[in-house]
Simulated assay, not measured.
Amino acid sequence: MFRRLKISCENLSLVSGLLKKNCRNLLQLEVIEKSNQWLVKRCREMNSAISIPRPFSVRLAKAQDEPHIMHFLREHLYDEEPLLRSLNITKTMAIPCLEAYLNDHLKDGFTMIAVEPDNRIVGISLNQRNCDWEGDKLRERAERVQCDPLRKLFYIWSIVAKEPKLHQKYRTSCIFEIAILATAREAQRRGIGYQLTVQSLRLARDLGFDWARMDCTSEYSSRIAKKVGMDCTWSVPYKHLVDSAKKPVVIPDEPHSHIRVHVIQLRGS
């Protein structure tokens, strides 16, 4: 009888050891499973946070692109460009005269656009032929405008167009101008503005222009101009643009502190 009890105790001890071992294994498996679940979740979060840039190409705008270009400018220029934003010129305003001015740029046929494979526009370089009377035309336009923010905008543009005296300095009546450079906010930091600028300068060179200019009201566009080799030939701090009461007309957000005019020679003298 005692022998049987001894055997039973030994069996119970063996079973108990096996149960403890199985419990430990189960606990380890549970920990591993939870760890794997955490890793899978973390990877999914990282994949959702990291967006792979989509490819894009730069081409000359066509006539059928014009309505899409104007829509793009309403969505990505008015609320993003420092000077327009500081003057409270938004896409919700009734601004037919400004859109007429932008449409005049398109008529020159020099505008470049960046498009993704599905032909969605993600960037625009609105280019034009800048003649020595451009500043006077902008001033006349400013005097005809009833809207005060737009009047200020055209006056500032007229100063930037005329004050550097580039036509007299370089002895030419016509300069290629990168007038407006805009990138879709969700497509920024992909080099789109840089490529648009490079291709625009290449177009200007192919068209026979000797000089190109880029009037930068944004610090970011000024950096792009420098990156492609354009020299800053004229600048004015925003705080120096004052009204009759000596108060600043515009106070853009940082880091936009100056308007800068950049120039590059396209062909040898």
Results as ranks from 00 to 15, higher is better:
G208E: 09
Y194I: 01
R205G: 14
D231A: 14
Q195P: 10
R202G: 14
S221P: 04
V236A: 08
Q195A: 04
S200R: 06
L201T: 00
K239P: 03
Y220I: 11
Q199Y: 12
P237T: 02
T217Q: 07
S222I: 04
D210L: 12
E219K: 06
Q199V: 11
V236C: 15
R205K: 13
Y220D: 07
L196G: 05
T217L: 04
A204L: 04
R213T: 05
A225G: 01
S200M: 07
M214C: 04
R202P: 03
K226L: 05
S200H: 02
T233I: 14
K227W: 08
Y194Q: 10
S221V: 11
I224R: 01
Q195F: 00
V198I: 15
G193V: 04
D206V: 13
R205D: 11
L201Q: 01
R190Q: 12
W211S: 01
V198C: 01
S222V: 03
Y238Q: 07
T217N: 08
R223N: 01
R213A: 14
L196P: 12
K226P: 09
K227H: 14
V198R: 01
C232G: 05
R223C: 00
A204F: 05
L207M: 11
S218W: 03
V198S: 11
S235Q: 13
G193P: 14
G193I: 10
C216K: 09
Q195V: 09
Y220Q: 12
D231I: 15
S200V: 12
G229E: 15
D215R: 10
H240S: 06
S200K: 05
H240K: 01
S221D: 01
F209A: 06
R223Q: 11
D210G: 14
I192G: 11
C232Y: 15
G191C: 02
S200Q: 06
S221L: 07
A212Q: 09
F209K: 04
R223Y: 07
A225P: 13
D231N: 15
M230S: 03
C232E: 11
D231V: 15
S235N: 15
M214K: 00
S200L: 02
S218H: 10
